[in-house]
């Protein structure tokens, strides 16, 4: 059903995880109007000269959004890209504000959970390891 090289990824487990919060995830992804209002409330977005890839909405769409769209069938490289977004571009300060009530930090934390479960997380023993703060 997919041509992804999913070696080393327990896609069933990801799927099960996604299902556990499916309703909320679906609603959140559908509710995002791309209004970019959340951007202003993210100190990292401000600190990074308004780089759009630091926008809270960008971060959750490019993490949990990807996992949802692919129904959990992703390769390791994709998980690693997600890792770079959810750890490298967000410190989970939980301060972003979405006028539609989307809990963006919860979604980002959810993506981190899934990555952790697959053994994909930042390696602080490595020089130059990702570290948004």
């Amino acid at each position: 059903m997919s041509n992804e090289n999913t070696a080393g990824v327990d896609t069933d487990r990801i799927k099960k995880r996604l299902d556990s919060r499916k309703a909320k995830m679906k609603l959140s992804l559908a509710a995002c109007a791309h209004c970019t209002l959340c951007a202003e409330s993210c100190f990292l977005f401000n600190a990074r000269d308004n780089d759009p890839t630091y926008m809270p909405s960008y971060k959750f769409i490019n993490s949990i959004g990807v996992l949802y769209k692919k129904k959990g069938v992703v390769d390791r490289a994709t998980l690693e890209d997600i890792r770079d977004v959810v750890w490298g571009r967000c410190v989970l300060c939980t301060r972003c504000y979405c006028p539609f009530g989307i809990d963006i930090p919860e979604m980002i934390a959810f993506a981190r959970n899934i990555c952790r479960e697959q053994g994909v997380f930042p390696d602080y023993e490595e020089k130059g390891s990702i570290h948004a703060g």
């Binding site: 989970l92 981190r112 952790r116 997380f121 930042p122 390696d123 602080y124 023993e125 570290h131």
Partner: peptide, 14 residues
Amino acid sequence: CGGCVSVCLAGGQR
């Protein structure tokens, strides 16, 4: 904890 103790290699996932 994924915060400070991960960074200082004392209490992160690993």
